[in-house]
Design a protein around this nucleic acid. Structure first.
Length: 117
DNA sequence: CGATTGACTGACC
DNA sequence: AGGTCAGCCAATC
């Protein structure tokens, strides 16, 4: 329960992402306390123990990795849990508008309290 | 235990 | 303005 591991910490932050919003690896890393943790953040999701399925429920405790995007506003096309296409559907299902292969971080980037500087 | 990779980011050219 | 190079943190092999 207590996030003693950096990985668990990442999961906690990702789970904190509200519906209809997205966050970047760097942002999550910054919340963890190390802005350079961006890579470890991606690795954490790489071993994502609870990836969203077709019947993904927002009430579930799964980790919405599809809400986590890189600085370009898109998930890694090579490691997408089910394909970038799937991510797009999930994000659109939350109300996020996809530009082409990336979302408008300027509008949909998650803004946790205290993160606005 | 040591070296490498990795779902990234930022800076430099 | 866009592409390329290097760097940092942590986990895995």
């Amino acid at each position: 329960m207590d996030s003693d591991n950096t990985f668990k910490r990442v999961y906690e932050v990702v789970r904190r992402i509200p519906r209809g919003r997205v966050a970047t690896y760097g942002q999550i890393a910054r919340i963890l306390g190390n802005p350079r943790l961006s890579r470890a953040v991606g690795f954490a999701l790489h071993v994502n123990p609870d990836p969203p399925e077709d019947g993904f429920d927002f009430d579930s405790e799964r980790i919405p990795c599809h809400r986590v995007v890189n600085r370009l506003g898109g998930l890694a096309p090579a490691f997408a849990f089910g394909g970038v296409q799937r991510q797009r559907l999930l994000l659109e299902a939350e109300g996020i508008v996809f530009g082409d292969e990336n979302v408008d971080l300027t509008k949909y980037q998650w803004q946790p309290r205290g993160e606005q500087q």
